[in-house]
Design a binder for these strands. Structure first.
Lengths: 306, 306
DNA sequence: TGCGACATTCGGTATAATCGATTTTTGCCG
DNA sequence: CGGCAAAAATCGATTATACCGAATGTCGCA
């Protein structure tokens, strides 16, 4: 049984005439006649009563033709679904973002994306880099915004922007008088870090390797005061518990009252934020739209890599 | 788009592996691979994300495959309908019968048919021969039981039985003493006839051509007392208005009290009852079942022609 | 008994489906 | 970094199918 055969019998039922049915299917009359016979043989039933005068349906034929029409309608739906799926900007996109970017980028990104791809609704997933990588490869998310380093097989990436780090101290801290902070100075203070799993914690430790030394006493503040989020850490710093390193996009106007922000001395440590997606993810248009939206989002203080 | 292609993508979605999907479709892996690609090209969308590890569905792919399954289910229904239609004894059969046979044959025929073809429900149409012929050719009925003469192009017939005619008079009528009635005698009496259109009226007129003579006065009883049915005529005869000719199958035990029934003298006039159906009507099994049922019905007084 | 209208059958041909073998891709691992 | 293994894509050849035009068969009709 083929869809063509079903189309033929529907045409014959409609036209009640093999010749006209053939014409309406743009095939020769013998072609249609043979195809109908073949289908009748396959089904083992006579669908049409042929006679010189006119063609009429058997009762089985009526039912079969009606059902054939239903099949053809469902086929049309397949085509419609495919048509709808053609636009890479249409339909939901599952986007994963790490915790230290999400709250600062999304408020800028979402309006920009609404502008570029209004049909594409975002399903957001906030998580650690490692978990996002896993979800990406499992197909649980389509695209991820993470920070380097990020190497995963089967995953393509694209640079988005480089984000400088800054030092945050409580108001009135002695470092307030300094114009810039040397990375090596940090070890002198209680440096509040995110909990393990956050890649930004690793970035900070990389910036100031001294913080990582195992010689720190077991109960030291660096160990115990690990914040669960940058916001928590920010409040702890404001409370005078210590200092911290923040990505510049996380600095808001409200911080002015609570914190003192200072740049690093010498080469500014940064992290590189990238876009990642499965190499085989077909909606490249959607990926590009995300990239464009990030570049157009106007995040303060970062150098875009578009 | 072909049904085969749809089966292939459903298999790939099920197996999540081109090779296994190909095996489950009993085709080679390249065959399935190119078929899927062809469908993707035709639809203009990517349905599967291929990678070394595993195959996964795009969101469009998920929708399309689901719809493809629906198509295949509907195709299965086509096959089921055809399967049901295979038995010629299954499903309704539209049977037409003339007025002068229907009330006497059906009570015998229907039980016999229930026995032979319990799955076949009869849709009955009672009408004149001419109308039944028309309906038969139009496909409004499938089979007809009529009396000869019956010649219609495109219609096949089969003899069922020959039915003798008898003369019915009121109780106490002088002819009651006669053993048999000569056809020519009828013209001496008021002979009650069915209204025109009933073939049995023509049979009676043919049996006794004298009744047909145009010399009858305009208001004569033969003209005015045309019964609408054999039952009506029977009651009129019982009421003493005249005599009539009846087919023998219409005689019931109840008639004994009201009427006097006499055979014809000489060659008994009869009518031949036949089965008729469109030459192209495919359910020959159903036609044969009807014939068998009539022959098995045990109608009194007729000679079967099986 | 031809005639017309139509369905069916018949050869021949172009297209498509399919296969086995091969190549390419890709992740993986020493 | 280079070979290995797995899987999909590609290739070349073969087979099957769809289709056409022409011829043939069927049937009702005049």
């Amino acid at each position: 049984m083929t869809l063509t055969e079903l189309r033929y019998i529907v045409a014959v039922a409609r036209e009640r005439h093999f010749g006209r049915a053939a014409a309406s299917c743009f095939v020769s009359q013998p072609t249609l006649s043979v195809a109908v016979k073949k289908l009748e043989d396959e089904l083992g039933v006579t669908l049409f009563e042929r006679s010189a005068g006119d063609v009429s349906l058997t009762s089985t034929g009526e039912r079969v033709v009606e059902q054939a029409q239903r099949v053809l309608e469902e086929v049309q739906v397949v085509k419609q679904l495919a048509e709808q799926g053609k636009d890479p900007l249409a339909g939901p996109l599952r986007l994963g973002i790490i915790y230290t970017i999400s709250p600062y980028l999304l408020p800028c990104l979402i309006p920009a994306l609404r502008d570029k791809a209004p049909q594409m609704q975002l399903l957001l997933e906030e998580n650690y880099t490692g978990r996002l990588a896993e979800m990406l490869k499992q197909g649980e998310i389509d695209v991820a915004i993470v920070a380097e380093p990020f190497f995963e097989t089967g995953v393509s990436t694209l640079q988005l922007y480089d984000e400088p780090f800054v030092v945050a101290t409580p108001k009135g801290h002695p470092w307030e008088k300094l114009k810039a902070i040397d990375a090596n100075q940090l070890a002198e203070e209680n440096v509040l870090l995110l909990s393990p799993g956050n890649c930004f914690r690793d970035h900070v430790l990389q910036t100031c390797p001294d913080l990582n030394r195992e010689s720190l006493p077991a109960g030291s503040l660096q160990r115990t005061l690990q914040g669960s989020s940058l916001t928590t850490i920010r409040h702890m710093v404001a409370g005078g518990i210590g200092v911290t390193v923040l990505p510049i996009t996380s600095i808001t106007a409200a911080d002015d009252a609570l914190l003192s922000i200072r740049p690093f001395a010498g080469e500014t440590p940064t992290r590189r934020v990238i876009l990642a997606w499965r190499k085989n993810f077909p909606r490249t248009g959607a990926v590009e739209a995300i990239r464009q939206a990030v570049l157009a989002s106007g995040l303060a203080g970062v150098s875009f890599l578009g």
